[in-house]
Amino acid sequence: MTSPVPAGPRIGLFATCLMDSFRPSVGFAAVKLLEDAGCTVEVPAAQTCCGQPALNSGDFATTRRLAKQVIETFAGFDYVVGPSGSCMATIKNDYPQLFADDPQWREKAEDLSRRSFELLSFLTDVLKVDRVKARFEGTVTYHDSCSGLRELGVKAQPRKLLATVEGLKLSEMQDAETCCGFGGTFCVKYPDISEKMASDKVANIEASGAGTLLGGDLGCLMNIAGRMKRLGKPVRVFHAAEVLAGMADGPGLAEPEVR
């Protein structure tokens, strides 16, 4: 945040691939939160994925190809914002490293890195939003997704905003900062270990007494919601942006359309 925030900043929304395919409502919630804060939001059609699956599989060549696509697609925006700590950490932290030996692209990657933010921390840290107008009746608990937490320092920001949601009560779970076992392709390469980790997470969620689980990353939320449904647990799952935007009145993750 070295440069001052321009009035009515122009935001390129990074529509993460899981959000795009599985939960567009999170995208619309993100847009509403950003527009309420005075931003202009655009969604470039030329985007697909940040490249993380390739990066974490050790395929750096494919990752660079996709990174260049992202860098070019989001070249003109004041900020690039996405509703995921893990995708935004890839763009912010890994892209510059990927082009360590390529000064021209490294410069571009660093420029994008400076402009890129995870949604909830962007709202509070950059736009200085300190409250939202939303209502949500019930007790929630919050899972701190690893990339957002450890690579981007997202911890207090969502809690600060959630505290201003009318009717919402936060009950912290044990080990909120422990990985849920998603880990991108990890969860399908090592399903047994992943399942055990997800089960531990579900047990902690249940013990918190909360009726709803919130988080900032769809990958983790899909993993936890999937395990929770398999175990027959009634806890509902939403992305925090949906609650903050007052858009958590529809079905939660893995719930049928008509309740």
């Binding site: 390129g12 529509a15 959000m19 795009d20 395919s21 599985f22 939960r23 567009p24 409502s25 995208g27 619309f28 655009e42 969604v43 470039p44 059609a45 969860c187 399908v188 399903p191 047994d192 992943s194 399942e195 997800a198 899909m222 993993n223 919601a225 999937g226 395990r227 449904k229 398999r230 993750l253 893995a254």
Partner: peptide, 27 residues
């Protein structure tokens, strides 16, 4: 994926499709 957990179903359209339906062809 489905060995140990259910897969949440998508909401029916991609965000990109829904966005362009609602907001037209911006950007």
């Amino acid at each position: 994926w489905t060995k140990g957990r259910d897969l949440p179903a998508p909401q029916g359209k991609t965000f990109q499709e829904a966005w362009r339906e609602r907001r037209g062809k911006s950007s």
